[in-house]
Nucleic acid binder design. Sequence first.
DNA 1: CTGAAAGCGCTTACAG
DNA 2: CTGAAAGCGCTTACAG
Lengths: 311, 311
Amino acid sequence: VSRALNKPGRINSDTEAKIRAAAKELNYRANPMARSLPTGRTHMVAVIVADITNPMNFDAIRGAEFSAARSGYTTVIAESQESGRLEATALERIMPSVDGVILASSRLNDDEIAALAETKPLVVVNRRVDGVADVVPHVEPGIAAAIEHLKNLGHEHVAFIEGPAGAWMSNHRWNIILSQAVGAGLTVVKIGPNEPTFEAGRNSFDLVRASGATAVIAYNDLLAIGFMKAAQANGVSVPGLVSVIGFDDIFASEITTPSLTSIKSPLLDSATIAVERLLATIDGKNPDQSVPSSLYTTLVVRESSGPARKG
Amino acid sequence: VSRALNKPGRINSDTEAKIRAAAKELNYRANPMARSLPTGRTHMVAVIVADITNPMNFDAIRGAEFSAARSGYTTVIAESQESGRLEATALERIMPSVDGVILASSRLNDDEIAALAETKPLVVVNRRVDGVADVVPHVEPGIAAAIEHLKNLGHEHVAFIEGPAGAWMSNHRWNIILSQAVGAGLTVVKIGPNEPTFEAGRNSFDLVRASGATAVIAYNDLLAIGFMKAAQANGVSVPGLVSVIGFDDIFASEITTPSLTSIKSPLLDSATIAVERLLATIDGKNPDQSVPSSLYTTLVVRESSGPARKG
DNA sequence: CTGAAAGCGCTTACAG
DNA sequence: CTGAAAGCGCTTACAG
């Protein structure tokens, strides 16, 4: 029976047909738990994010879930609540139940991640860890466009509101902004670290103002929006006195006033590809490790960026 | 060994201690799949939402996840993408792996839900289905406050932008708005059905304007914000010409301009309680079915509601 | 092609 | 209190 249902063609087709008919009539469903005992496969993958409610993570969750479901895998999502300890606890609980894990926004350090990757197939998204599979979109194009945009608007001094101390992607973005801004003849400073939240963006206002920057790029849109709201609350008009650019292009960026210029990152595709590679690894294949050229950032210009105030 | 680890005190304590020490040293973890075969328990619960990325569902997901984790259960989240068919497919796949399910925002009809509930422990949140356990907060207090608020501001005609056709909660809110508005001497009309989205809110603008209402209450905040943005785009000032009130008090409501007045619903607590009841049912208990008095809605007044335009 | 059997890693009566 | 055994529902070599 097992052969009939699982290896179509491997047995007499009459027999197979009869078995299938009976199975259908009885509405038979294989018990996934029983199945996983002899095979060692659970057909589940874990997706770890720092915060389920942070729009930054939506597309990662969606892409992973979609991609997994398409292959018959079910996704379990765990949240680290921005805490490495909670993340470890959650992982401890979930690891034995899954065939592999996607780290979409992890608070673990590189060593912990590398150790985890020894245990089970694992791929990190938006981060690079030595010896661990990753999917990281090309961030240069979007940043280049943003820097050029600001330069064309007459800006000379820009501030980067960075993300959490441990966030690889925040550093990555900063490094590229730094080299491109300098290359374009702009001055640039980094302000932070900050939690990747609206509140933290608001709190960054004073330091950003103190820096004298006329344009800010934030590690993510929530930080950018928080900063923008603080600016408005302090009578500093956006983009009149300061231009603001975020990262990720979350939904909220469209509905703020002014709407937010943002560097959009292909999180959905990144997560989709990450899961595909994860499943390939689980199946014992050796997936391509290069970054698809389709994965690149783009600048979405809206109302929060404008000409630098003269003089 | 099994007894030593799982039924503390049931065996000689020396033996138990030795076994525990050895287990710790070997870093032993029971295989959850193997465990579930003889017991029939998977220690997983499913949470079904229509849309993971709709802020409406955040607190439901969080509350459920938190509550489940506290009891050692892992949560698997499935998304129906606003489609009953996809929801059925997802459920089909996940049902055999979980001990119970929370329906946080389901697109299934009552009969389908009742049938599902025959299969496994199930509790619905924010909806009432005959014969099925539910958790529905008291929606009257928040609506009463909203109606009074509008009446005090001089409004006489209000429109309700309703949610999806099948959404029990949308009807529930409408029924209460209807009776309370009429009770307060206001006229009230219902406009819809609409998807529970920003876009749908925007699209509702023409019909709402046609109705002549000077105040609108929307089924959720996204609809309210969409309507507000369409109003502004059409030169209709909020709250100058029309007041807008949403439901749920999502994060985005604070950052729009003007910020959105909203009727806050205790989704986090509702989901927490739902999971507690679900787990009790799984454990063969008969949980309390009454609605805790702590579960009630409240009005959060912000900038989108103001005096009715005179004359 | 197709039976019959062993085994996956646990739990839980059942004896002793 | 504690061995030894059966059984949970599958899959997969192994014979025939």
